[in-house]
Each structure stands twice: as structure tokens, then as C-alpha cells.
Simulated scan of single mutants.
Amino acid sequence: MQLYQVDSDTSTKITSTYLKQFRKCPDNSAYDLDTWRTTLWSKALGDKYSYLSKKIYERWLYLRYHYLGLTIETKNMLIELRKKYLIGLISNGPSKAQWEKINQLNLSNYFDVILVSGDLPWEKPEPKIFYEACRLIGSLPHNCIMVGDKLETDILGGIEAGLAGTVWLPISDKTRLTPDDPKPGYTIKRITDLMTFLKRRPDGPELEDSCSNASDGS
């Protein structure tokens, strides 16, 4: 926001306020996405800077998808995987916000089935949303695996749905399991390690058997 002569401390406070409200309510059925987010920015900016809300929102949206995009390595991996496997994507969140993300990233080019919890009566970790994905793919749960970064939704849901396996990709600060965490079958350090997991026995480099030491995931 320094482009608009807003000092660093104030910018940090404004951004924190916006993100807190955005994560609490990423969309509002009474508004289109652009109007709702601009409104959130206006509130976060306060009376002094609210006139910047449209410009700040447009810049935020550009940066959001600039940094959120799939890497070329991930795209190539998904293309290769689809030559042999059917791939589904299950996303928790409000319908409009999630589909914007899906469309902006062109994810339909890389997945055979995409489910958004906002369109359905369930969300992860509810097993029924996994069963629905399996049904649409045309496969039984015991022939499918779940790959995800969230233990409490992706991994727990895959376990409770009785899938053939669960693979955890920790991308947050949490990289070790606690005794109370759902226990993934395997842990990978990079999403592209999934090719190793599927092509070979799971003893390749940097692929960790999470069950060998449930206390720390290694």
C-alpha cells in the first residue's frame, strides 16, 4: 500500500483486518464477489483510506492469483497422472469463491472431477463427500487414495471414508504429527513426489512412512 502513501505499520494492520474478515466470510450471497470483497477492503481501510478500496482490491486479486498459480512441474505431473489415473479435486468452501479460484487456475484442465462443498450438503472430513467423488469418478473407495495438506479434513476424511490410502503434504508450519492427529499412511515433502509414490514402492527418497513413528510423522 506504500504505492498509495500508506505507511508500513498501517498497511500491515489494514491487511490483517481484511484477511481476518475475508477468511471468516469469503463471499456473501447478497453480493457478487467483487462487490463483497471491495466492501471488506473499504471497512478495513477505514474512513481515511476507504476511497482506495477498489484499487487495493484489484491489486490484491492480481497478486492472489499470481502467487497461487500451479507450477509448471505440478501441471506436468497432473498431465502425466491423468494418462493412467482418474483424478478428483474436493474443495471446502463457499461455492462462488471456490469456483472463482478453480476457474482462474484452469483446474478443470487437470482434474476429471471437481467438487466444492458449498454446492453440496457435506464438506471434508464427512465421508459422504469422498463417496460422491468416488461415484463421479466411477471407482470404489478402496481403489482411491486421498492426497491433501490438512490433517483434520483431508487425511481424517480419507481415513473415515475407508480409502485405500492417505498421503499428507504438509505446506504450513506444522510438519510433524502429534499423538492426537489423524495418522496419514504416508508423508511427502513435495507434491511432485507423488509420482514416486504411485510408480514405485513407497521407499523412494524423501517419502516418509508416517506409520513407522506416529509421534512425529517420520
Rank of each mutant, 00 (worst) to 15 (best):
R37F: 14
K199V: 08
S53L: 03
Y110V: 03
E208L: 14
D173R: 05
R190L: 10
Q5H: 15
E126H: 14
Y31R: 09
D47A: 12
G157E: 00
Y65D: 04
L156K: 15
A161Y: 01
T35P: 04
Y67M: 02
I171V: 11
G93V: 03
L63V: 07
E160V: 06
E58T: 07
P26Q: 05
F111D: 05
K54R: 04
V116C: 13
D180T: 07
H142P: 07
L3N: 12
D119L: 06
G157V: 10
S50R: 06
K13Q: 09
Y65A: 05
W99Y: 15
L120F: 07
A133S: 07
T71P: 03
K189A: 13
T178F: 08
G69Y: 02
F111I: 06
S16H: 05
L177A: 14
L169T: 01
P26C: 05
Y31C: 06
G148Q: 00
N213H: 10
S8Y: 15
L194N: 12
P141E: 02
S42K: 03
I188Q: 03
K54Y: 09
L151C: 06
L61D: 01
S42T: 04
I90Q: 06
T38F: 02
T15V: 13
G69A: 15
P179C: 06
I56E: 01
K150I: 07
P121F: 02
R135D: 10
N109K: 10
R190M: 13
W168N: 05
I87T: 12
F111E: 00
S8P: 04
A164M: 08
L52K: 03
G118V: 04
W168Y: 02
Y67T: 14
P26S: 07
P184V: 02
Y110K: 11
D180Y: 02
S215F: 09
L81H: 08
N92F: 11
I114K: 02
K150V: 15
P202Q: 13
Q2Y: 12
L89F: 12
A44Q: 09
C25N: 14
L198Q: 00
K83P: 00
T39F: 01
L63P: 04
R176P: 04
S117Y: 03
C211S: 15
Y4K: 15
P170M: 01
G158W: 01
P141V: 01
M195Q: 08
L70E: 08
I171Q: 12
S91T: 15
S29D: 15
I188W: 03
Q21R: 12
G118P: 04
T35K: 09
S212C: 11
L136M: 13
L45S: 00
T38H: 09
C25S: 09
D181Y: 07
Y85V: 08
S8L: 10
H66G: 03
L19Y: 01
L120R: 14
C134Y: 03
C134A: 11
K83F: 05
A133H: 09
G148D: 10
W122V: 09
S215P: 04
D47V: 04
K24F: 02
K43D: 11
I145P: 02
S108N: 13
K54N: 10
K13N: 10
S172E: 00
G157Y: 02
S215A: 13
S210F: 04
S8E: 15
R135Q: 08
Y31N: 08
N106W: 11
L120K: 13
N103R: 08
E152K: 15
R176D: 06
G88N: 10
H66N: 06
E73R: 08
M146S: 13
D193N: 14
L120D: 07
L61N: 02
E100P: 03
L163I: 05
I159T: 13
K101H: 11
